[in-house]
Design a protein around this nucleic acid. Sequence first.
DNA 1: ATGGCCTGTGCGACAGGA
Length: 258
Amino acid sequence: MSDFTIATWNVNSLKVRLPQVLDYMANNPVDVLCLQETKLDDEAFPRQAFSDAGLHVCFTGQKTYNGVAIISRTEQTNVQKNIPHFEDAQQRLISATIQGIRIICAYMVNGQDLDSDKFVYKMNWLTALHEYLGSELKQHNQLALLGDFNIAPDDRDVHDPAKWLGGNLVSPQERGFFQGFLDLGLSDAFRLFEQTEKSYSWWDYRQGGFRRNAGLRIDHILLSKALAERCTSCVIDKIPRQHEQPSDHTPVLATIHV
DNA sequence: ATGGCCTGTGCGACAGGA
């Protein structure tokens, strides 16, 4: 038996954060790292830097916006880009099987505002993801969905619930989709364990958000039953958020006894 | 204070993020 650690990190530009990502893989026992907001098209992706470090990688991206990647220490098979049967110009999802575990890396839609066209797109995107997850769970007993969900599932996950009440990222509609994922049989790995209060994964760059711990927990790891039963810890690693030139998100890690 | 910051684009502001 050994530990298998999977993680998710919205890097807010892989071009800027590449040294931090390589450093993170060199110095942490992370077997799989899912990245979001790479903001690079596939031609510009630094594949050589990862292969030089002995890492496997799959990715799908576009210039300026979005973009996702999965970094792993071992081979990846059955790589699938985007959500099948969902036409989408935005590159927000990639799946791969690694050591028998189906890994789905997602950068879910922000939505901007409840009366925005972008919120309509968010609802449609989440509907397509729910359908895809149902189909993937039928084929894969061991499945993990990791990423930037752009949903704070509970008021515990919001630094100032009164200020955010009902707004984008915390609306009943968005939380309904999160609950829908749980209803498929997935578990929020972070809530499998006792956690310190006011634990967040994102802090605004403005107004000293990190210093004041004015954050949100919007980056999540959801595990199928077979993985949740063998999950031994889930933590938010705040150290990268303390670095020079940090991403506004910090990594979330889950360890599974395999 | 529907601003404050950061990134990309591309060279001046603006879009987008959350």
